Amino acid sequence: MTDTTAPDDAPRCSHCGEAFPTERLRALHRGLEHYDSLDDDERDAFEDAYRDEGDDLRSFRLRALAVLVALYFGFLMTYAVVAV
């Protein structure tokens, strides 16, 4: 359990009482740490949050790759102009 300072109205895990800044993070925590004690609605919330997290990670990886490719070709073109 991490020691965090969260507002009083922050979503809390019903199993361990840990506070989370968003419902999505709480659903991910409950699914990863307390999966066996979840009901069907909580498991559905976890699966939705997990899928959304995967989509966000995939999007981030594509954007990071695009930035790296742009930097690479930017430096390559700069080198080609300066070295000539």
Rank of each mutant, 00 (worst) to 15 (best):
A27T: 02
L62W: 02
A66I: 00
E18K: 14
D8G: 11
S37E: 14
T22E: 10
R63L: 10
V84H: 14
L76T: 09
R61L: 12
H29G: 05
F20T: 04
L65R: 09
H29N: 05
D48T: 12
A70M: 07
D41S: 13
L32A: 13
R63W: 06
P7Q: 07
F75S: 09
E53N: 12
D36S: 14
V81F: 15
Y50T: 01
L38E: 07
D40I: 11
T22R: 10
R51T: 13
L71E: 08
V84F: 14
V81W: 13
T22D: 05
T78Y: 12
C13S: 14
D41G: 10
A70R: 02
A49F: 03
F20S: 04
D36F: 05
A19P: 15
A27E: 08
D36M: 07
A27Y: 06
Y35P: 01
H15D: 12
M1T: 04
R58D: 15
S14Q: 14
S37H: 02
P7M: 06
D36E: 13
L62F: 05
E53Y: 01
R24S: 13
V84R: 15
S37K: 02
H34F: 05
Y72N: 06
M77P: 03
H15N: 14
T5Y: 09
D36N: 10
D3G: 02
D52N: 04
A66Q: 08
L38M: 14
C13W: 12
R43T: 10
R24P: 01
A70K: 00
R61G: 01
D55T: 11
V67W: 05
D3H: 10
D56H: 07
E23I: 07
F46Q: 01
L25D: 11
T78R: 09
P11K: 10
L71C: 11
Y50S: 15
T5Q: 08
L32K: 14
A6W: 08
T4I: 12
T4M: 06
G74T: 05
R12I: 04
A10E: 06
E33C: 10
E53S: 10
V69S: 06
D55N: 09
D41R: 13
V82R: 12
F46T: 02
D44P: 01
P7I: 05
V81C: 03
H34T: 05
E23Y: 05
S59N: 09
A83I: 07
M1I: 00
A83V: 04
L65S: 09
A66M: 03
A27S: 15
R26S: 07
D44N: 08
H34P: 05
A64I: 00
A6L: 14
L25K: 03
G17P: 02
A49L: 04
L65N: 07
D48F: 05
A10D: 03
M77L: 15
L62R: 14
E47W: 11
P7V: 05
Y35W: 02
A66W: 04
D44M: 04
A27Q: 10
D8E: 15
F75D: 08
A27F: 09
D48E: 14
M77V: 13
D55V: 10
A45C: 08
A6K: 11
D44R: 10
E53G: 02
A64G: 00
A80Q: 12
R30F: 00
C16P: 02
G74Y: 00
G54C: 12
A49D: 06
H29S: 06
F75V: 11
D8K: 12
T4A: 12
R58H: 09
R51G: 02
A10Q: 00
F73D: 06
D9Y: 11
D3F: 13
G54E: 11
